[in-house]
Design a protein around this nucleic acid. Sequence first.
RNA 1: GGAGAGAUGGCUGAGUGGUCGAAAGCGCUCCCCUGCUAAGGGAGUAAGGGCUAAUACCCCUUCGAGGGUUCGAAUCCCUCUCUCUCCGCCA
Length: 426
Amino acid sequence: MIDPKLLRQSTADVAANLARRRGFHFDADAYLSLEERRKALQVETEQLQSERNSSAKSIGKAKAAGEDIAPLLAAVNDLGDRLAASETALQDVQSQIRDIELDLPNLLDDSVPDGQDESDNAEVRLWGEPTQLDFEPSDHIKLGEELGMLDFEAASKISGSRFTVMSGPLARMQRALIQLMLDTHTEEHGYTEQYVPYLVQADALFGTGNLPKFEEDLFRTTNETPYYLIPTAEVPVTNLARDAIFEADELPKHFVAHTPCFRSEAGSYGQDTRGMIRQHQFEKVELVHFVAADESMAALETLTGHAEVILQKLELPYRVIALCAGDIGFGSTKTYDIEVWLPGQQKYREISSCSNYNDFQARRMKARRRNPETGKPELIHTLNGSGVAAGRALIAVMENYQNADGSIRVPKALQPYMGGLKVISA
RNA sequence: GGAGAGAUGGCUGAGUGGUCGAAAGCGCUCCCCUGCUAAGGGAGUAAGGGCUAAUACCCCUUCGAGGGUUCGAAUCCCUCUCUCUCCGCCA
């Protein structure tokens, strides 16, 4: 959520910033007229509440003094009705304003490049060279099926499309990837590992910004108060800061969590229908930072670097891109995507997305720190990034480490996690 | 699943219709005293919001959540959630 005060006082500036985003329209005039009504109604309501309080107090005193309170009661006769009417009207306007505020994406950082879509994203750096193979590379689907270790038919029988069954060494390699990531981030980068719920309630999703706008992306249970399957560990982990006031010396906090992620993929029907790229269920290791407001831009660089280390250890070629205004996510003020080279597609594909949400989520969640100078609570900044998506990392290893005979070499960094196994073959 | 108890400020905990945003203690901050230390004295110490140039006044809201009764609710009524204890079941 954008600072309501800023929205109110600098509406035009906010609108101009948001206009850089693709397909987003902010009706500033409608907002401003609602805001005008809100102000009038709130002042009126609070005035009436104040009257009620002071008259109730005098009635109490009069009664205690044994005076006749009948005339006092008569004087406040219609106050209750007037107050109730005013309160109702105020609540109505406030909820309309809140709906607008919850619907507004985050303000973009000035460093975010202009652009309409992914073709306008800016390459920040390149690591390694696209893998050269002296044979026609296969994609992960062919490799996995020929090894007999990826079974999309079985998955479809059990759960329908966009699921995968893995078996044997390939299943183990995904687990090895997750282990490598967790160990690297906890032992070398100083993160604290978290185990968190995979089912969350709506409030948590409002906090991160997934609700109310993106409900169709989520799986929801049928309970009376429904649970939602987490679309990313970002949701439960970031919500650790909800309603909290951290002491200054408790920050920054660096959390890492491995969880499965569940996404409905509504609206992506044509894309990546084959294979393991886009699934309803996938494994991911997520990095989350809670930092003081002035530290978040530096933290974004650090966090992205931590994710990159995983690809470097796996010796997978990648590039880092800065998402342009048109491509950046709803709650992010600045995002770097890390894209790994996939020989089977002859393309770089997203394997991590690292975002600075600045105070956008913190405001929704009431995540604060105590400013040691002023002693006052102030919003923290939250960041998160994949470090990295395990399913896609598995694809990347398969395709980059394939041999002409369809076997797959195990990257050195993974071998200790796979009992020393060096090659996966049928 | 059955039976019972509870939810108040950073913590402990009092408060069953008015002067209660809330006693007291602990903790914390500042000041005083004490030649160190220990002890002692005093003051202060919730969050969110409105108004505003303002982090100044003033005002509003909040005692698990939501509704209700009342001129007035932490206190009374209803619904829900969560926590704890005992029993049962269970990875």
